[in-house]
């Protein structure tokens, strides 16, 4: 039984092979060739690997960790051929990315253990929270779920309207009180209304806030708390939205948001550019949160469930 099957990737075998094919010409292939047949990885190769990882925003700490693991594996297994080495590289990186929890599935047609299943979406300014919620609503609606949106970003000019337009596109109801309203009150109303209506899933938008602003983070904690007063255990998920082009600061963001609202999953947006979003590897590993979704465009269907293998392939694919 192969490594990927163990991780439950059987059905994605095809995709994996596609990726392998592609990467043979990419940097991963080059690296594989360079270390093949040796019992030690030479410095030049490690430098190359370092460059790939650093320029993908993986960060120094995680890069050193990955390199250490590779060195250990090569020292132990010795004289590996090209494909074995490629596999090791992938395995080591994939192992750092946490899997989804069973009660928090990423697939849109999956059954929730709670009704309503409440999801709170948080993040710094401009990462694409509202857009992500709009796309999620569209997907869940398409999967036959009863969706309700909560417009708790009452701060940014026109944010409520932006979400309202998305609610129309996805054809789902929205709870709103307008700009300047108390966001905790909007969240409370939204969850109450979902409970009364029997909605399957509630998506609550919040205003973007920089993670080092204490009072704004406290406000977020409060918004989270009031939802639990309506439905036990709500919000059941807190999704932190990260912009793929963000560098190492994303780690600080993830830590601060975890402290304030205990995030349970990540959404990585704007992956349709040239940024690779490598920082999520370190975040997922260090904070033990899975990456659930990726955003790859501005249309409603440009949101995908995260796939670790494609993500790792993309890291090494220079011509993405």
């Amino acid at each position: 039984m192969g490594f990927f099957e163990k991780l439950g990737f059987k059905k994605k075998q095809e995709k994996l092979e596609d990726g392998l094919e592609k990467s043979r010409d990419g940097l991963l292939g080059k690296l594989g060739k360079a270390i093949a047949g040796k019992d030690k990885v030479d410095d030049e190769v490690l430098d190359d690997l370092e460059e790939v990882l650093i320029t993908s925003d993986v960060g120094v700490k995680t890069t050193l960790e990955i390199i250490k693991r590779i060195e250990e594996r090569v020292a132990r297994d010795k004289y590996l051929n090209t494909s074995e080495l490629q596999k090791i590289l992938r395995e080591e990186i994939i192992a750092l990315l946490k899997e989804n929890d069973h009660d928090k599935p990423a697939d849109f047609d999956a059954q929730f253990t709670h009704k309503p299943h409440v999801v709170m979406v948080v993040g710094v300014n401009g990462v694409g929270k509202t857009t992500t919620i709009g796309k999620l609503a569209w997907h869940y609606q398409g999967a036959g779920k009863n969706v309700l949106l909560g417009a708790a970003d009452t701060f940014r000019a026109a944010a409520v309207n932006q979400l309202k337009i998305w609610s129309e596109r996805a054809n789902v109801p929205i709870v709103q009180q307008g700009q300047g309203a108390d966001p905790a009150a909007v969240a409370f109303d939204t969850v109450s209304s979902a409970k009364a209506k029997g909605s399957d899933i509630v998506l609550v938008d919040t205003a973007g806030r920089l993670h080092n602003k204490v009072s704004l983070m406290n406000e977020l904690t409060k918004i989270k708390r009031v939802m639990g007063k309506v439905v036990d255990g709500a919000p059941h998920e807190v999704i932190l939205v990260l912009d793929a082009s963000t560098g190492q600061n994303a780690m600080q963001q993830a830590k601060a948001f975890t402290q304030a609202v205990d995030i349970t999953g990540l959404a990585l947006t704007k992956l349709d550019g040239t940024a690779k979003g490598g920082i999520v590897i370190g975040i997922s590993s260090e904070l033990s949160v899975p990456v659930k979704y990726i955003g790859v465009g501005e249309q409603a269907d440009d949101l995908q469930v995260f796939d670790r293998i494609s993500f790792v392939n993309a890291l090494f694919d220079k011509d993405k």
């Binding site: 082009s245 560098g247 600061n249 994303a250």
Partner: peptide, 12 residues
């Protein structure tokens, strides 16, 4: 440009 941008800043 967002000051939090990572390595991709040079490309954009």
């Amino acid at each position: 440009v967002d000051s939090m941008t990572g390595q991709d800043a040079v490309n954009t």
